[in-house]
Design a binder for these strands. Structure first.
Length: 270
DNA sequence: CGGCAGGTGCGGA
DNA sequence: TCCGCACCTGCC
């Protein structure tokens, strides 16, 4: 974690007694209360999901999933800027390419942190990319995304975006403000609203790969129009529709680890 | 070698 | 407001 320009190594432990133990490795000692508060927000620890669990305890699709994952919530371990970088390298690319792009960025602008027997990559300060030119980014195989990453880094470096102010705004304001960022469109905005800003009903856009999966899960068909899917999730889960979908997806990919799901395998390209 | 992938910005209707 | 298209790169 890069917190206030201070690279930190975080080590989480859970012993299932409803508590999480966090060890912080550092060169320069950070303010622990400060970090605790930030971690609480990023990992969405104070969110009360009992309403969701109770409402859908008997839901045909959700009940077994809630049983298995009760309390699961969306999390963005990274800052808004870092999350945006991740979303941008995911755009229009296979997983392998996204990983390659991010690794290239890490080795050029980030740092390797060694702590607790691990070596992990750390994000960079937006300044680092703001100082460079787009062409240098293109050399890192970012393709046309180089422009988005450069412009977004500029905006963060110039202090034009205030993540902590945004966290206190309503959905429409956040949507409006983040859409101003170059390279951020509908798909990215809806992920942000859910994962970074914790709006459990934010579900107004479906990307092609999600469309295929929802078509199977909800209609048992190969492909169903996006509008029909959006209507269906709203009808089934109302104000919890995005969270409900998250439970479905997480459970599906968890199942995939143990058993082969033929129709899904076809869709996954590494 | 053309098509396409976990989208988006842009120009024109 | 809606639609078609180009766009980096790498894999199929």
């Amino acid at each position: 974690m890069l917190w206030k320009d201070n690279p930190l190594g975080l080590f989480f432990e859970s012993n299932y007694d409803q508590k999480i133990k966090l060890a912080v490795f550092y060169n320069q000692k950070p303010d622990i209360a400060d970090i605790t508060e930030e971690i609480k927000y990023r990992y969405n620890l104070d969110s009360d999901l009992s309403g969701f669990s109770k409402t859908f305890k008997k839901d045909k699709l959700l009940s077994p999933i809630i049983k298995r994952w009760d309390g699961m919530r969306p999390v963005a371990a990274n800052s808004l800027y870092e999350t945006l970088i991740i979303y941008i390298v995911l755009q229009n690319a296979t997983v392998r390419r996204s990983v390659q792009m991010l690794e290239n960025l890490f080795s050029n602008f980030g740092a390797k942190l060694v702590f607790g027997g691990k070596e992990l990559s750390c994000f960079w300060n937006p300044n680092e990319i703001s100082k460079t030119i787009e062409d240098n980014l293109r050399k890192l195989k970012l393709g046309y995304r180089a422009k988005s990453i450069k412009l977004i880094s500029d905006q963060f470096a110039d202090g034009k975006i205030d993540e902590f102010w945004l966290r206190k705004q309503d959905k429409e304001t956040i949507k409006k403000e983040t859409l101003k960022l170059y390279g951020v469109g509908p798909a990215t905005v809806w992920y942000l609203l859910f994962e970074v800003f914790h709006f459990y009903d934010s579900f107004e856009h479906i990307s092609p790969w999600e469309q295929k999966i929802f078509s199977r899960l909800l209609f048992n068909k190969e492909i169903v129009p996006p509008e029909k899917i959006l209507k269906e999730v709203d009808k089934r889960w109302g104000i919890w529709k995005r969270l409900a979908s998250h439970y479905l997806f997480e459970d599906l990919f968890w199942k995939r680890k143990n058993q082969k799901i033929d129709w899904l395998e076809k869709e996954i390209r590494l």
